[in-house]
């Protein structure tokens, strides 16, 4: 038979422990759980509603769009006419390929340059390191104007070349700071040990630093990729229309409400709003595919780089 006093003591102890548990660790009451679920559903709906409307409108006919005042949620007779028109022309397909190439190459180059400079700036023995860091930081405060940038690109002979979309924005000072802060917080003892074992800086960077920095590299890579994917202004300024990336095509269609091709002559009446929405859908796809794989690094990477800096 159990000792009544010890049973009482353990019961009291449990009660005490329960009483001292923070309120957020308590299991919520059913009413609270239901209200949380409702709130989450509403938030999800608010986030998904525009996407659903864009997708549904892209699958609608012009008359259906007109009869629903431009916003269709459930097309009665879904049609892929807008997508067929877009891909038949080849302009959107070409622009999509160009954007993918610019984003891939640009992101790779940017990450390489940023990592290289960030690693260099973490070396205390780097001559003029502070000067280079300050020079980079200066660009965060003062960016060149449109015309000086244009003149520089022109003088470098980069007008109407894809390099004009990559080189002027090759390195972002913000990303440099994030990566440098992350590198600074890696244990210095590791580097010292590696040096004692005879490793050079390149080997330390490639074999030790980079594998430890996957999170921050994913974040910075995502920043660069989204930047290259969305950039339209430099394309407008530096490139002729036969080299425009998808962002410019998207701008032409959606923001400026331009029709597909020359509507004054074309005999094919296209549902322009459906096409606008179809282009939005197409431009969203790559980011939607990539983002879930990178987002887990997102918060961790940025906070690591920023808070510990």
């Amino acid at each position: 038979m159990a000792n009544p006093s010890s049973t009482l003591a353990s019961g009291l102890g449990r009660l005490k422990a329960k009483d001292t548990r923070p309120i957020w660790m308590e299991k919520p009451k059913p009413a609270v759980q239901v209200s949380k679920a409702i709130a989450l559903v509403i938030i999800c709906f608010l986030a998904l509603y525009p996407l659903l409307a864009v997708l549904a409108t892209s699958l609608s006919s012009q008359s259906e769009i007109a009869n629903n005042n431009g916003l269709v949620l459930f097309p009665k007779e879904p049609t892929f006419a807008a997508y067929q028109t877009i891909f038949a022309g080849g302009v959107v397909t070409d622009a999509l390929i160009r954007s993918l190439l610019i984003t891939t190459v640009g992101t790779a180059l940017s990450v390489v340059v940023t990592v290289a400079m960030a690693y260099g700036l973490t070396r205390r023995d780097l001559v003029g390191g502070r000067f280079f860091l300050m020079t980079a930081l200066f660009t965060m405060l003062f960016s060149p104007g449109i015309i000086p940038s244009f003149l520089m690109v022109k003088e470098l002979g980069l007008l109407d070349s894809y390099a004009a979309l990559v080189l002027p924005t090759l390195m972002s000072a913000f990303n440099l700071v994030v990566v440098r802060s992350f590198f600074m917080n890696l244990p210095q003892e590791l580097f010292e040990a590696a040096k004692i074992d005879g490793a050079g800086d390149f080997r330390i960077l490639v074999q030790m630093v980079l594998p430890l920095s996957r999170g921050v590299l994913a974040v910075v890579g995502l920043f660069y990729a989204v930047g290259y994917w969305n950039a339209f202004f430099n394309a407008m300024l530096y490139l002729n229309d036969d080299k425009w990336p998808l962002s410019m095509i998207l701008r032409q269609y959606v923001l400026l409400g331009q029709p597909m091709g020359d509507s004054a002559v074309a005999e094919i009446a296209v549902p322009s709003q459906a096409i606008q929405m179809a282009v939005v859908v197409i431009s969203l796809i790559p980011i939607v595919i990539v983002f879930p794989f990178l987002q887990r690094y997102f918060t961790k990477g940025v906070l690591t780089g920023a808070i510990k800096g």
Binding site: A66, N69, G70, P259, S263, V265, A266, V270, S272
Partner: peptide, 26 residues
């Protein structure tokens, strides 16, 4: 777009748009 959609659907009977917008495929 909103104006054109409303005109097409018959929601509004009179609109202002430039006269060249009358002719042509669209």
């Amino acid at each position: 777009s909103q104006m054109v959609n409303s005109f097409i659907s018959g929601k509004v009977a009179m609109i202002y748009d430039g006269l060249p917008a009358y002719i042509g495929p669209t």
